[in-house]
Design a protein around this nucleic acid. Structure first.
Lengths: 103, 103
DNA sequence: GTTAAACATCGACGTTTGTCAATGTATCTG
DNA sequence: CAGATACATTGACAAACGTCGATGTTTAAC
């Protein structure tokens, strides 16, 4: 993988937006949540699947899920009283490849 | 890139350590610093090269550089009164590939 | 219509974070 | 040695963050 002769510095605005995405993953609970959802049956999990293994209260888990959703890493589908969360296809890969190329 | 049938959930300890690394990049100033160092002549830059383009005070820049060093993303070599910072080879790539595979 | 269950939202709290001015530490120059 | 330069460290402060208990909202079951 060759290094281009000229290397552009990331713009302040792009750095801000990239930092927002990275920040969404910069917490152990949220990293575990993403990993747990990815490993769960059918690739989806509800809040009640996560609270116990995480050792966190239900409001805290909902809070983390909202942050991951707002950052575009998760999607939510409500069925009955349950809310099922999934990985947003390609979102994580997009971040890691952009991170690797941009900085 | 095939997905393994069984997917391990990341351990709490590994999530903690991964979060520490990610957190070091979860700030627009630090992302710009990494990008600026990568783009700078000979792949190295001193503190005085960074303060003006970042619009931050010298202590703040030193603070960010320390965080990036502690996380293993940068190396420092002192020559005279100047301190030259470089990307630690492979550190960023190691993070992104681990991130992509582990979560 | 009541009750119960799953989840979201709110309010409050201690902790962590990003920033700067002030100060300390080397290193070079005359 | 005296002054200047480049950088690190310290202390302080406001803002952001992670967490929980309490409460609100929606849906299902009886």
């Amino acid at each position: 993988m060759l290094r281009p002769i000229t290397r552009e510095v990331i713009s302040a605005a792009n750095a801000e937006s990239l930092a927002r995405s990275v920040k969404a993953l910069a917490d152990p609970a949220r990293i575990r949540i993403v990993s747990m959802i990815a490993a769960h049956d059918d690739g989806e999990a509800c809040v009640c699947d996560l609270t116990d293994p995480l050792g966190l209260s239900q409001p805290t888990v909902s809070h983390h899920l909202r942050i991951l959703m707002d950052a575009g890493f998760l999607t939510r589908s409500k069925r009955g009283t349950w809310a099922y969360y999934r990985l947003a296809p390609g979102a994580l890969g997009a971040l890691t490849s952009f991170l690797a190329s941009a900085v």
